[in-house]
Each structure stands twice: as C-alpha cells, then as structure tokens.
C-alpha cells in the first residue's frame, strides 16, 4: 500500500495543478475572468449612468452613481478611479463627466442594450418583463460587430420597444424629444415619448399607473396639487413632481379624441364596434399580422360567432371572417358597441 500512496498522491497533485492552472480554461483563470467581467460590467453600467445624466442634462456624482448601481459609495470611489485612469471620465469638483472616449463606449453599450430589447420584443415570444433583464446581461456580451449584424438584420431599427432611440453605428442619437407632461394645457393631446426611469420610486409609480411610451394622453385638469389626464379611456391622477418625469410630444388638435373603455374582448356575437387603436402591448409579428388583416383605427368590426368552448371568437373584419383569441381581442380597443342592424 505504502509503495502506491506516493505515486498516487503525485498523480492527484499533478491533476489538481493542471485543472487549476490550465491555460485558458483553468479554474483560476476562469475565476479571474469572472472577477474581471464583473468589474467590467460595473464600469460599463457606470458609464451608462453618466451618459443618461448627460443626455437628460442632470449632474452625475459619486452619490448618484452609487444609487444607480446599488453599490456602496466606498466601492464606487474605487470604480471611479479606474474609469478615470482609463480616460473614460473626468471629475470636476463633485460632478463626473464623460470624456469623448467614454461617451463612445457608453453609447456602444446602450446601443447593444436597446437593440437586444428590440430583438426580444419583435422576434421572440418573450414577454415584456423579461426584456430588460436579459438586455442588461446581453449588453456586456455583444461585441460591436455582433450588434451591427443584429441591427442590419432587423433593418436598423431607430427605436427600442420603450420608444427610446437606439444609437446608430457611429454613435449618433437624436436630441431628446418631448416636453414634460406638466407643460401641457388642459384639453391638449399628446403622445408619451419617454418615461424617466430615475428616481426609481417615481418610475415604479408610473409603471403602476399602466403608462407606457406611445400612449395617447389628454389633459383634463391641472392644479398645483395634481395633474389629471385620460389615457386609453382611463383617468389617471399624478402629483406634478411625478408627472414631470413623463416626456410627451403634442399631437395635432384636429384628430378625434380617442374615447374608449372597452376592448374587442367584450363584443358579443351580433354586436359591432369601431376600432380605436391597438394597444402598444401588441407588437412584433402579431401586431403586423393584425394590421395586415385590416385591424386599424376606424375599422368596423362585428363579432359573428363564438367557438363552442367559448374561445376564440370569429369577427367580420373588412369582409373577411377572422378568429381572434380572447387575449388578442383584449389588446384591441373599441368605441361604443351597437347591435348589428
């Protein structure tokens, strides 16, 4: 036995050393790479924050960075040092600014993020909650040539599913669109262009209200305490400080006001109604398909019959009989219902 123990130990030790230090795929190497990756992820996220602040003309500080990254201030200080050492940002007093090189870097990450969200929303069956999470990871993995290939394949989309512009290959971005919701007068109509996602508590409130980009809104009441408006048939009330975080683009006045509380899902066989709009929740392949079939604002739709098991329902749409499932019908808003003559 003793004669065997020595060589056996030697072999085991050799194996352990091999697996630990194997070039490229050794455990140590992998561990270091993961550390570096998370370092890289953190600094890339920091650059993104700096860029967002710049785009929205806010001042970025170590404190705001710490809040945005959810990292203690002490750790952020080290991070800022590394970023400055890499000549990606400079600090002037308390405020942090991107260098041209840092701006370019940040735009590359934002481009990858928004492109990936666009990809997930248009070409996969994944639902809204998954997009942001997955894009937050994918943005650090996509190389810029991969991002370009993806963009080309999708027809270089100018906007992501939240209505935010996607930076071009050369890092161009249009000036910020829209004005604060608070600047509208009563009765004016506008379309939501962007929801500010910081501070987080305010953003959460906007999401809870069910607001999303591309939604049409009409102001009904403004006072010092609250701002009331209608959107997709529902009344919303926000504090002015919250409403200021909603950017809108005014709409021409002559268009009729969309008044609707109901969707196609409530249409009973024998009733008809006029389509007011497709919800922004319906997107990608499905949205294009429904529009190709003629489901557009102004289309008169009549429910003709229901499947014996209750779903789907067949609708007469521009002369053709089309079956839609309940959850699809719920994405199509309609005006008042009436019995078919």
């Amino acid at each position: 036995m003793n004669e065997l123990t020595g060589p056996l130990l030697a072999v085991l030790a050799a194996l352990a050393i091999y697996f630990l230090f194997r070039p490229g795929r050794g455990w140590l190497e992998r561990w270091r790479r993961r550390l570096r990756l998370s370092d890289r992820v953190l600094s890339e996220d920091a650059l993104k924050h700096l860029y967002h602040c710049e785009y929205e003309q806010r001042v970025a500080t170590v404190q705001s960075l710490s809040g945005a990254l959810g990292t203690p201030v002490e750790k952020v200080a080290g991070l800022v040092q590394r970023i400055e050492a890499g000549e990606l940002a400079t600090s002037e007093g308390a405020s942090l600014r991107l260098t041209p090189k840092g701006r370019e870097y940040a735009l590359r990450i934002i481009r990858a993020h928004r492109l990936w969200e666009r990809y997930l929303s248009e070409e996969t069956g994944l639902k809204e909650p998954d997009w942001h999470k997955r894009a937050e990871q994918q943005e650090h993995r996509l190389t810029s040539s991969e991002a370009d290939a993806l963009a080309a394949r999708m027809g270089n989309p100018p906007f992501d599913p939240h209505g935010d512009p996607i930076p071009t290959q050369r890092g161009q971005l249009p000036p910020r669109r829209g004005q604060p919701l608070t600047s509208l007068a009563v009765g004016e109509r506008a379309r939501i262009a962007h929801l500010e996602d910081e501070p987080e508590a305010v953003y959460a409130q906007l999401v809870a209200e069910g607001l999303h980009p591309l939604m049409a809104v009409q102001l009904t009441h403004v006072s010092a305490e609250r701002i009331c408006f209608r959107a997709e048939g529902e009344e919303h009330v926000l504090a002015p400080i919250v409403a200021a975080n909603v950017a809108v683009v005014p709409l021409p006045r002559e268009q009729p006001v969309e008044e609707s509380l109901e969707t196609l899902a409530v249409l009973e066989p024998g009733q008809e109604a006029t389509v007011v709009g497709l919800s922004p929740n319906c997107r990608g392949l499905e949205r294009r398909r429904l529009m190709d079939l003629g489901l557009l604002p102004g289309t008169v739709v009549a429910a003709e019959m229901r499947s014996p098991v209750g779903d789907p329902t067949a609708f007469r749409i521009r002369g053709a009989l089309i079956a839609l499932r309940g959850e699809q019908a719920a994405n199509i808003r309609i005006g008042s219902r009436r019995q078919v003559a």
């Binding site: 070409e123 996969t124 994944l126 392949l285 499905e286 398909r289 079939l293 089309i322 079956a323």
Partner: peptide
C-alpha cells in the same frame, strides 16, 4: 425549448 420562438395567432375562416 420553444419559449423564445415568435408566435402570432391568426385563423381565417374562408367562405
């Protein structure tokens, strides 16, 4: 396996 594949229901009932 197929969670991420695109999906859009449409069913036309021809005359």
């Amino acid at each position: 396996l197929l969670k991420g594949e695109a999906s859009a229901f449409s069913l036309e009932l021809p005359p």
